[in-house]
Write a protein that binds this DNA or RNA. Structure first.
Lengths: 273, 273
DNA sequence: CAAATAGTGTCTCTAAGACAATATCAC
DNA sequence: GTGATATTGTCTTAGAGACACTATTTG
């Protein structure tokens, strides 16, 4: 009878075929649009970071940032590293979206992808700069469900317009997975990953937890509300929203002045609630 | 400039080091305990399937059923296949619990595990038989949080008693991950996987969706209630439970008779609600 | 009848939605 | 003052928890 030590010394991982493992990240940001009047508060736009592929396959098409899992790191660390490599921002939290492992999802071979959704405050990105790289751009996101049950994902940046069409495949435990009908020029199965990430993010935004990561340390309650409305694509009455988040935030002594209307008190996230 | 076809023909996956990928499944079942009186309804026990390892490492210790991802299948299919190999039952739905990829979690080398929780109706297991294999047993589950914040996972089968102690590491988006303080004789990091699976399952049982999988096609509302109470470790007033699930179930014409008290109507799950 | 569960009705309390009303600034 | 948002208060309604009460069976 061999001992465990003997067994391990003989064990060779190379005897079995293994897949390559990647982490892909749907990194979202919210940017205020230009003011239409000096009085009005700006509208918000939901943005998604895409990278133009410089190599085959899907060369010159747009894809989610991501990369191969390296030895010595967890999948989550890999996702954080990948997003930091592109934005120079390390997000505080990432949301696991799912594992994409259909056999032929990647023409290079057997590659399974771990998808995460990440939310980044616009200020962090500004401070980090690095918005110039022509191969990395923030696309405006539109994701809606039409009457026939098809989901339309539209990503726009300047003249570039990527339009994917998807069908909801199944809803399992509150998470929906999507089948790609039209990839719309998005590389790999990333259209389905983006749809799943948006769907998961909308689900999470209900809990008033994910939304704080989109904003700087201090924020107005209206800004917080706009963030939730932008993610979830709904609108709430301000009075009710304030009541709902009151347990999650605490006041500061500062105000935002010079906006052409009553100044708003700045709040910060309440920890340990 | 090479074409995509040329590129792919030169591309060799073997140039990069890759991890082995597994799927591990925490398969739960609910079994009624013996009646204490001819009148009383039986209490329920939450059971978890464990396999005694026949090979190194962790030889003769108990582990979750699971195995390596094979070419041509998705990770989810792999999990379903593994659980079917052990129980001869293919669960209708499995709940993704998380990816476990800490570098040294497996002494054999670089192996990342995809954890799923599965719920199996006792009837399916009975019909499939196969409860005899000495290397696969259903352990009674107890999972509680003590005053000092430590979680105690106790698995018992006959004289075997596995007692693990864990600390909640972080709660991210409603899911808690655990750090093992005492493995209690459970192989690999499976104690942490089991804790995460239980925690995820309890979260899901709130939605009255996961709980149907524990029961046969038709069931009494009391049985359904006991299932939820067993998973979530709480108790609800029968009147309120009935009101809550009323939208998820529909009546049949059948009754359960001969129980020493008023017979209960059998219900079935309402689809497309 | 007794013991037990099956099932119904209703009171209360809380949380969410709707909306009215007031406060405060820049111009 | 005007136009906009900020902030507070209150009416209404839906849903969950608590609990009392009735129904029905077996031994």
């Amino acid at each position: 009878m061999e001992t465990e030590k003997e067994f391990l010394s003989k064990y060779r991982m190379e005897d079995y075929e293994r897949p390559s493992v990647t982490a892909d990240v749907a990194a979202f940001m919210i940017r205020p649009e230009d003011k239409t009047s000096y009085r009005k508060n700006p509208e918000n736009k939901l943005l998604l970071l895409l990278i133009r592929r410089g190599a085959h396959p899907f060369r010159d098409m747009w894809a989610l940032p991501g990369g191969f899992l390296q030895k010595g790191e967890t999948v989550e660390e890999c996702a954080l590293r990948e997003i930091q490599e592109e934005t120079e921002v390390r997000p505080v939290s990432i949301l696991p979206v799912g594992v994409f492992s259909k056999p032929n999802r990647d023409p290079r071979g057997w590659i399974i992808s771990h998808a995460y959704a990440s939310v980044i405050s616009e200020e962090s990105v500004k401070q980090a700069g690095r918005d110039d790289a022509a191969d990395a751009q923030w696309f405006a996101v539109s994701f809606t469900c039409s009457d026939d049950g098809c989901y339309h994902l539209t990503l726009t940046y300047a003249e570039i317009r990527l339009e994917a069409v998807l069908a909801a495949e199944k809803t399992c435990f509150g998470r929906t997975s999507f089948r790609i009908l039209e990839s719309g020029g998005i590389a790999f199965d990333h259209a389905a990953i983006i749809a799943a990430a948006l769907s998961a993010l909308r689900e999470e935004a209900k809990n008033y937890e994910a939304i704080f990561d989109f904003l700087p340390e201090t924020f107005t309650l209206t800004a917080l509300q706009k963030v939730q409305e932008t993610i979830m694509n709904v609108s709430v009455l301000p009075a009710n929203f304030r009541r709902m988040v009151s347990g999650y935030v605490e006041e500061t002594d500062e105000y935002v002045r010079g906006e052409g209307h009553r100044p708003a008190k700045l709040y910060r996230r309440k920890r340990n609630a």
